[in-house]
Design a protein around this nucleic acid. Structure first.
Length: 595
DNA sequence: CTAGGGTTAG
């Protein structure tokens, strides 16, 4: 008995409080007038009065009381939220979700939504599994629980906790709760934004399995995700899935697919893009300005600005008006090619149409100047921006910094960094990457490492590109083994090595004459889910040629073509210098080398 | 909650 304990310990005041509490509780639970008084105080939000009433009561017991009584669920929630703040106590998950359950039964969904929104923001300590346990024991209506879980997933996703949203989605399946597209579509979309494509595929497959009828938007998001991952075949298969579900593709579906083909690094990609366009028209879907913009940008990035100009003309003949995006793609394409005269014509044309160049238009122009070693012109355009009422953004500064670095003017590049900070623009990872690359090119790896340390202090984390720069720098100095250690370090930090990472390492080993090590890197790359690309083949072909293994180089060349990869200028140069000049005629279709 | 344009690494 507590009474005895208290007497033994001589803690008389505690004993008194204990008895008063007990008495108050008993009074409260036996008297209905008291219950309605409390409810009334909660309803009117008379918190200070309620606090006086509660002096002798256990706040947790009151919540329990409200839940078991006929109290209005909204009042219970109001009390729950207030008492959490007031007494700094966290009610058990079970009571919390019982409250939400009663709200769901009363169809007060917006209350649940806002509660869960705060809940996932603040309650960092609860695991998804403990929440699911609380939900399943806290309420008996399967339907109400499903709605709560649906809103929980949505709350996680909206608060940028996609991984938790994904976990909740999976657990919902284990518990058999039925989710809806209201939470699944934002989840799919968030997974695509974070490039978590394999997780996205899991969600998509589960949606079909659990009969959460995917909507047009679900399909479009999934197609976009698969395109971003380069899985174009799977993306076309989704179109077939749509037919099964009786959902018709719309202009966005086709545009997404066309863009996917445009950005794919394979032979005949623009042909496939064009074929998809024809298929779209055959299915009665009319191309819009976005369709044309995608094709124009695709041709520009393919190094075929004249084809882009033809599409541009076609777009206008179909009565579609070019917009800023159209002009930006074309101006960017022309500037990268150094065709500033033609770019200027388009620039004036867009202004004549009443379209205003924006920060991206300027960035394209400045980038073109920088890439063509015209730093003075770049700087002039940069200075023109504020006069035209266009603010520089972090990308503008990064382009200029990179331009100065590549022109060998590192000091000027660092000066630009000072300027941007003075104007309240924070350097980001790319800013540091440009500078680090500049220092590496100069051979000052010491300073590059110091900059990397500085990033940590500014709450910036080195990314894949940072590591790629350092790895490549080490490899080109013949320190491939050191570079391999960086590969391990980036994996430890959860960064996924890219094609560039592996290709630099292979190049490093090839230049050291260590083909075996280079091939081991390729194996590791494939285990990491990356297939050899054009650069991989170029590196390896060159490596084999240098060792005089022309037959093996030839095999690689054929393998690359069989995979539909497009040989680039580098491929031709390697083959010409290393194979043809040594009297070896590559056993591949000759027309490919007529460039 | 769905599609298009600009920077850094091979």
């Amino acid at each position: 008995m507590p009474t005895e304990v208290n007497i033994f310990c001589g803690k008389i005041p505690h004993l008194i409080i204990f008895l008063r509490n007990k008495q108050a509780l008993r009074l409260f639970s036996s008297s209905s007038t008291d219950s309605s008084t409390i409810a009334n105080l909660v309803a009117k939000q008379h918190w200070s009065k309620l606090k006086t009433h509660l002096q002798n009561t256990n706040p947790k017991a009151l919540l329990h009381q409200l839940l078991t009584s006929e109290a209005d669920s909204e009042l219970t929630l109001r009390y729950l939220t207030w008492s959490q703040k007031e007494f700094k106590l966290s009610h058990s998950l079970e009571l919390t979700f019982r409250t939400l359950h009663s709200l769901a039964c009363a169809k007060k969904y917006s209350k649940i939504r806002s509660f869960l929104d705060n809940f996932v923001k603040n309650e960092k300590n609860y695991s998804v599994s403990s929440i699911f346990h609380a939900i399943s024991v806290g309420g008996d209506s399967f339907c109400a629980n499903s709605i709560i879980v649906d809103m929980l997933v949505l709350a996680y996703v909206k608060n940028l906790k996609t991984h938790l949203g994904y976990e909740a989605f999976r657990r919902a399946g284990d518990y058999g709760f039925k989710l809806s597209v209201i939470s699944c579509n934002p989840l799919l979309s968030a997974l695509v934004k974070e490039l978590e494509i394999s997780k996205m595929e899991v969600v998509y497959k589960e949606m079909i399995k659990r009969r959460i009828g995917p909507s047009l938007i679900s399909f479009n998001v999934v197609i976009n995700g698969l395109c971003k991952a380069g899985k174009l075949n799977k993306a076309s298969d989704v179109i077939e899935d749509m037919k099964v579900w009786g959902v018709s593709p719309n202009v966005i579906t086709y545009n997404t697919l066309i863009d996917g083909y445009c950005k794919m690094g394979k032979i005949g990609k623009m042909y496939k893009a064009d074929a998809t366009l024809k298929e779209m028209v055959a299915n009665g879907i009319c191309p819009n300005e976005v369709t044309f913009n995608i094709l124009i940008d695709g041709f520009c990035k393919d190094g075929n600005v004249s084809a882009a100009m033809k599409v541009f003309a076609e777009m206008q003949s179909q009565g579609l008006k070019p917009n800023v995006v159209t002009y930006n793609s074309l101006i960017n394409g022309l500037c990268c090619d150094g065709k500033f005269g033609e770019a200027t014509v388009l620039w004036d044309q867009m202004i004549g149409l009443g379209l205003k160049p924006n920060v991206i238009t300027y960035n394209s122009l400045i980038n073109g100047f920088c890439k063509n070693k015209m730093v003075v012109e770049a700087s002039d355009s940069f200075n023109d921006m504020p006069k035209q009422g266009i603010a520089h953004n972090v990308t503008t500064y990064n382009i200029l910094i990179d331009g100065y670095c590549k022109a060998g003017r590192i000091e000027d590049a660092f000066a630009v960094r000072i300027t941007m900070m003075g104007r309240g623009i924070c350097p980001n990872v790319s800013t540091y990457n440009c500078l680090i690359a500049g220092l590496c090119r100069k051979g000052d790896v010491e300073a590059a490492w110091n900059l990397m340390d500085e990033m940590v202090g500014k709450d910036l984390r080195a990314d894949v590109v940072t590591y790629n720069i350092l790895i490549d720098s080490l490899c080109s100095k013949g320190e491939s083994r050191k570079a391999m250690r960086l590969l391990d370090e980036m994996s430890r930090k959860g960064l996924k090595p890219s094609h560039v990472t592996y290709n630099s390492l292979m190049d490093g080993y090839c230049n050291e004459g260590n083909l075996r090590a280079a091939l081991n890197v390729r194996t590791r790359m494939e285990k990491g889910g990356k297939q050899a690309n054009v650069v991989t083949y170029n590196v390896l072909i060159k490596g084999f040629c240098r060792k005089g293994r022309l037959e093996d180089a030839n095999k690689l060349l054929n393998e690359m073509l069989e995979k539909g990869l497009v040989p680039n200028r580098m491929t031709y140069e390697i083959v010409r210098e290393e194979m043809i000049e040594k009297g070896f005629i590559p056993d591949i279709e000759g027309h490919l080398f007529n460039v």
